[in-house]
Amino acid sequence: MTDWPQGYGLHVLQTVDSTLNEASRIAPTATGPVWIMAYNQTAARGRRGRAWANPVGNLAATLLMRPSGNPEQAALRSFVAALALCDACVAVSGRSDGLSLKWPNDVLLNGGKLAGILLEGTGQGRDLSHLAIGIGVNLSQSPPTDALEEGAVRPVSLLSETGADVMPEDFLTELAAAFARYETQFVTYGFEPIRTAWLDRAARLGEVITAKTARSETMGTFETVDAGGNLVLNTAKGRVAIPAADVYF
Results as ranks from 00 to 15, higher is better:
residue 29 T to I: 13
residue 121 G to E: 02
residue 135 I to F: 04
residue 95 R to A: 12
residue 102 K to G: 03
residue 229 G to M: 07
residue 84 A to L: 14
residue 231 L to N: 05
residue 36 I to E: 02
residue 25 R to T: 07
residue 225 V to W: 02
residue 231 L to I: 08
residue 81 A to K: 02
residue 39 Y to C: 00
residue 232 V to S: 06
residue 51 A to L: 10
residue 233 L to Y: 08
residue 157 S to V: 01
residue 217 E to P: 05
residue 121 G to N: 11
residue 216 S to T: 13
residue 154 R to I: 10
residue 24 S to K: 15
residue 7 G to M: 07
residue 38 A to W: 01
residue 155 P to A: 15
residue 199 L to R: 12
residue 136 G to E: 02
residue 182 Y to M: 13
residue 136 G to V: 01
residue 154 R to G: 08
residue 223 E to I: 09
residue 155 P to M: 12
residue 82 A to T: 06
residue 183 E to N: 13
residue 4 W to Q: 10
residue 92 V to I: 07
residue 158 L to C: 07
residue 23 A to S: 14
residue 4 W to Y: 09
residue 57 G to N: 02
residue 239 R to G: 03
residue 89 C to F: 07
residue 189 Y to H: 15
residue 146 D to A: 09
residue 90 V to P: 05
residue 8 Y to Q: 15
residue 113 K to F: 05
residue 174 E to H: 15
residue 218 T to H: 11
residue 130 H to G: 03
residue 145 T to K: 13
residue 2 T to Y: 06
residue 73 Q to H: 10
residue 40 N to K: 13
residue 43 A to F: 03
residue 128 L to G: 01
residue 206 G to E: 13
residue 152 A to Y: 06
residue 161 E to Q: 13
residue 239 R to T: 14
residue 237 K to I: 06
residue 153 V to S: 04
residue 200 D to Y: 06
residue 26 I to M: 12
residue 200 D to W: 04
residue 79 F to Q: 01
residue 171 F to L: 00
residue 132 A to F: 00
residue 208 V to N: 08
residue 25 R to M: 04
residue 203 A to F: 11
residue 144 P to N: 13
residue 202 A to W: 06
residue 80 V to H: 10
residue 56 V to E: 14
residue 162 T to F: 09
residue 75 A to P: 14
residue 207 E to V: 04
residue 241 A to P: 11
residue 35 W to G: 07
residue 42 T to W: 11
residue 102 K to V: 05
residue 203 A to Y: 12
residue 207 E to G: 10
residue 110 N to E: 15
residue 155 P to Y: 09
residue 43 A to W: 05
residue 90 V to R: 15
residue 131 L to Q: 04
residue 90 V to D: 15
residue 147 A to D: 15
